[in-house]
Design a protein around this nucleic acid. Sequence first.
RNA 1: GCCGGAGUGGCGGAAUGGCAGACGCGUCGGACUUAAAAUCCGAUGGAUUCAAAACCCGUGAGAGUUCGAGUCUCUCCUCCGGCACCA
Length: 789
Amino acid sequence: MNYLPYKPLEIEQKWQQKWKDNIFSHAVDFSDKEKKYILIEFPYPSGAGLHVGHVWGYTMADVISRFYRMNGKNVLFPIGWDAFGLPAENYAIKTGIHPRISTQENIGNFTNQLQRLGFSFDWSREVNTTDPDYYKWTQWIFLQFYKKGLAYQDEIPINWCPFCKTGLADEEVTSDNRHERCGNIVSKKKLRQWMLKITAYADRLIDDLSTVDYSDDIKNQQINWIGKSEGAYIRFGVQSNPADVIEVFTTRADTLPGVTFLVIAPEHPLALSLPTKEYIDAVKDYIDDSLDLSDIERTDVSKKKTGVFTGRYVVSPYDGSLVPVWVADYVLGNYGTGAVMGVPAHDDRDRVFAETYELPIVEVKDIGFDAITKMIEYLSEKGCGESTVVYKLRDWVFSRQRYWGEPIPIVHCPKCGVVPVPEEQLPIKLPEVDTYQPTDDGLSPLASIREWVEVPCPQCQTMAERETNTMPNWAGSSWYYLRYADSQNTNEFANFDKLSYFLPVDLYIGGAEHTTLHLLYSRFWHKFLFDLHLVPTPEPYAKRRNRGLILGPDGRKMSKSFGNVINPLDVIEQVGADTLRLYELFMGPFNGTFPWNYDSVRGVYRFLERVWKLTQDIVDSSVDQTERSVIIKLHQTIKKVGEDIGALKFNTAVAAMMEFLNVAEQHKKSISILDWSLFIRILAPFAPFISEEIWQVMHLSDSVGTIHILEWPKYDDSCINEDHVEIPVQINGKMRSTIIVSQEESMREDIVVSRANESEAIQRFLSGTNVKKVIFVPGRLINFVVTLE
RNA sequence: GCCGGAGUGGCGGAAUGGCAGACGCGUCGGACUUAAAAUCCGAUGGAUUCAAAACCCGUGAGAGUUCGAGUCUCUCCUCCGGCACCA
């Protein structure tokens, strides 16, 4: 016959237009239906446009959302823009184009691309972190942190380029500690910063992981990141001046008798005041040198251990012996107390240090868990120490010296000090500036807008100054999933009842790179809001899975510099969005890593084209009855695809549909339109465009309604099982033959055994042996355990 | 070094402890075509064999548990991801 050709671009363009303001993808507040909240990490709308990695994650979430809708659920599947960030600001520095303008353009571009892919987002709930109506609430939440004492200021070293005179983000610093733009060595500069006290939630962030369904690798990574370790503080008095005390942290208090030296970090408060006259110059030089080193260099394992003696001794609280104090950069200032006791016999790093400087090594006999307990008891009695818990997790540096972020709603008053902006004055909007370059002394570009900075103090009306730091771009993404529940609310960040209906998120899909930052930060914010009774659940995400990584065709990570980036739009131009969606799902399992393969894209295109053609055969022959073998395969496929979607096994779901097509093509003259339409329905969540076209245009149904609100087909159990099954026959566990029996017969041992014995091949293998045992797995297999006669 | 994850055909991958290699790609052969592309049909883990049947070997290596191991246990190797002088 003459087939109507499959023209994906025409079909997709048509439906894309019609779906623009579809409402079947809108979630309903307080519906009687069961809700399902499917969340994807909202994108940063970069100038480069959508990435194939986005497409993969979003397609999986879209399939699930469509599947749940067809199963009668009220699905919330929202989208928004994480639009503050460094690239837009750097672009503005380079071109002078306001970040708001370029961001708006990029959002328009992303929107088109997402719609082109047929994602069934609820566009009525779109959020944008740079919208003052949105960041008003980001600022508001900050004020709540401030009021509870969880937002505070501290002097924190930042990356500083002395040549450009700007502060730098970590990602602007190359691995050899240079500014990526100008190539100059980056140093550290201490600046006043706002901090959020995430450490106050460290225990709960660990403990509550047991209440959520995150994959084990995610849980482990978060636990290791928080890095809880139990140990003890031990205090050593300085010999020359017992008022000075050096406190160390150790997890091995039992090794205290083996202490032969003490090491303090170059950043330690006593590092400059402790040394004797004789040693002070050497110590100063050493500290200057080590502070020039980057963290990466300091913590490089291959680096030689260096240090310098202070000329001072402390007194061991264990036996009163004198212990020399050294300064060395292998001890970090920001972990524990910035000081450690050197026990070279029981710690590798201490041993290397001791060997380098020829310090004594003393072994401790009585070590272990009990010894630790005894030692801590002994120390607490003497008042020289106590048990404690420390964390690797540090408080969150929450300010940036940047323009393109949420202004921190604080006023600094010469009389009143730090004054929070009254809530009714929110949002504090970003002012227009002439230049986006940070100032020479490392302040945000906002600092030079005097008419914005100078405001009367909200408390005493004295002229005061606004905080000019902005928030990091993790701020807006820490609570966006809450806003989706009630995105238009002007009185509160979201209505509690609506939150109670939609929360928690049932499935959160995103990239592994956000496991320890965004995911942890947003859990922290959520718990804080929970404590204020503003959100209904202690955890935001009931289930989290990280998607894997798509590599370039050359097997390397996609990167501009390798020239191996696949642009999803190019793929769509060639084969259409349905093929792109299906291909990415088919590539491999949810969290795997695989290279792009053009030829395999072709294979998926062929599949859709064959579906298209076969539809015409089936409509053309218009039979009422479907061949039994096709019915069986159809119902097996409905079952398999439904189960696979629930288990996030999209690759095998697609494979199952391909298998069905292979069977169906063998019997194309004996498939009813009705049965075929069931197959098109299960294809619909995966390939929404071609399914809709087949449904509405190719007369599979009299209905003109969209296929995407139809019920997911039910499979018939009586159609799942084949009439006859092939049972493998094993001898001593080795497959020797198979027999074919009916479904009922396959469940009966006596019949299967006698049929097996009838088989020629089996008789040959059994001759000359004694059957010692028969293992029978009903419906599955028979195994004769034999010995030679 | 530590913590995760993974090693299966030429490639991506599939397999509740039960017929290893589903599905797709590629390759080979054939049909159609003046020809090519596209499409369709068939074959496709390896060894052995003129060929077929049959048999043998095969899931990183080695042991173990089991009637039976890609799957479970132990030891080792390799790769990927994350963290790392964290006391």
